[in-house]
Write a protein that binds this DNA or RNA. Sequence first.
DNA 1: TTGTAAGCGTTATCAA
DNA 2: TTGATAACGCTTACAA
Lengths: 357, 357
Amino acid sequence: MSSKLTLSSVQIALPTSRATIADVAREAGVSKATVSRFLNHRDKLLTKDIATRVEVAIAALSYIPSPMAQSLKRGRSRLIGLVVADVTNPFSVAVLRGAEKACQEAGYLLMMFNLGNDSCRESEAIETLTAYQVEGFILNTLGGDAKAVTEAARHGKPVVLVDRRHHGMQADFVSLDNVGAVRMGVSHLLGAGYQELLFVSEQIKGVSSREEREAAFRAFIGNTAPDSSGLQGRTFEHAADDPQALDDALRSLRERAGNRLPAVLSSNAVVTLRVVAAMARLGWMLGTDVGLIGFDDTEWSPYIGPGLSSIAQPTDDLGRIAAGCLIERLKGLQLPPRQIFLSGQLVPRGSSVHTVI
Amino acid sequence: MSSKLTLSSVQIALPTSRATIADVAREAGVSKATVSRFLNHRDKLLTKDIATRVEVAIAALSYIPSPMAQSLKRGRSRLIGLVVADVTNPFSVAVLRGAEKACQEAGYLLMMFNLGNDSCRESEAIETLTAYQVEGFILNTLGGDAKAVTEAARHGKPVVLVDRRHHGMQADFVSLDNVGAVRMGVSHLLGAGYQELLFVSEQIKGVSSREEREAAFRAFIGNTAPDSSGLQGRTFEHAADDPQALDDALRSLRERAGNRLPAVLSSNAVVTLRVVAAMARLGWMLGTDVGLIGFDDTEWSPYIGPGLSSIAQPTDDLGRIAAGCLIERLKGLQLPPRQIFLSGQLVPRGSSVHTVI
DNA sequence: TTGTAAGCGTTATCAA
DNA sequence: TTGATAACGCTTACAA
């Protein structure tokens, strides 16, 4: 108190705490209500004279309204909660980036909560963020905990799911067109001469995108007449802590292939790296001994071995569109849950080229 | 109003809006103050009987205090602002992760603002975050805008700088021991037989970590007796949009080397990838034609060419310690600005091994 | 030990 | 068009 008085009596522009609307009102010789009106309805409702007086006072005190107080009063916070399973995942970061840009442009701030791959904390994340009055959620989580999400929806907060849908959940959903992407990848391998395929995924565990990709893979294999094409395929779910198992899976892939060419379709960048590591352990050449194409195109993909063929996801758009959907809902858009699918893009490189030595 | 009444009279657990402290007080038959005391001083001040009544009521309504209202009242928000130059940078993400963990453990939530490499927005970021009453900042930005930071400090908010210090700025600073790391890298190259070195950095532009690494490189070269060791070194600042220039720099590096071995020390993972790309364009073999060691060890480092030698940064610790410093300050620790340096770790791989063919 | 009431910085509903 | 004034959900003197 006393220190405050001292400071202000010295009249030095060193306000130890932020100026409030009351300060501005006093400075401009008007009421708080007037200042508030200036802020929210600009000068629609104000005399030109008063408006400029307020404007000057605001500038003089470099006043910025407190979003805390505003959201307390309004019930709206201009905050959007982003829950991400794992910030370490480049895909998630790329999506985050697109989403953040869109949010900032629309005047929202993103409040991020990283689960660190501990999906148990999904409820905690949602609770914490609702406590902070976020107006809606962008979720890129494993989706194990449908309860948490319905909880959010129950609070009347719109939710957008990215990449992974939550079963039995009513919400907008933005994702890669997994079926199309798988078809693209497998067709590419087939066209490059590979006929015995292995789809390598992390343990599926009910994660929707993994399920969809695996199902699409099997469907595509099943629908392609095996007699004429010679195409065969299997799935391998790989646990991170068991590299040996991956080596074995690759060995038996090659055995099954016989005189046909074997190739791997890997379900994301993490898995791709594991396959690359296994190939290195086995001393096999990418493309020539076993072909490889993987989901997610990264900055390092071109420089691994002969270059990693990949299926690039439009991550930035994914994030941007997810944020867009949410913001539309916040503006009051009433619509049944939408599903938006974006196409991937094939990036062929050396790992899907068979070189005869 | 009426809808609220209707709902509560039906006694269905479907509160359309969150329960407030008043609801809990009513439910427990006590005053708001009592509930507040229960929340903040647990049962220190309360009768066992009343405490349990409150506890039950809280559970029944699944009440969670509003951090917005709390921070409005207390002036403290339990929020920490994190400003990062570029979420796409794996180093920043890794730091972010460590910081987030530490913050969450201490009961703080991280509010992230990504500059998207547009350093002009640093002030904007800090203003936005101060508006949200963040209690302090963790900054991993380019540091061009010292004004923004002093601004933050002026509001009495503690600041911790990670990796990049801001010149003329009073704040805690947590970083890799760049001098030690450079020495480690150069010694390693020297020990592996490389004598003509090139330090490749992004354009330095006053970014402290870049300056320090470059200066350390020159100092090390200068201090090593050229006669006995044959060691020579130059620096090349590379602009992202000019790959040609990098190719030229590598070519002249090799010319200068003559019959000695040439090698590159690259200043971070982004640059490393560019050097790798240039080597591929030139058709040179990593290690054999030109040696390479780079700052930042990544998940893909082992799989590029013969494996990329690198200097691993303790990113997780960096983030954790930065958050720790900040939290200590928030707890009232009075101390002159600290500088904390953590050691890097050498990860030797094939790219710094010269293979005679 | 508990309750009453004021106030944190806003906005919204009244009157004037 | 402007100004009191009462909330928003919480904490904290001060009283009881």
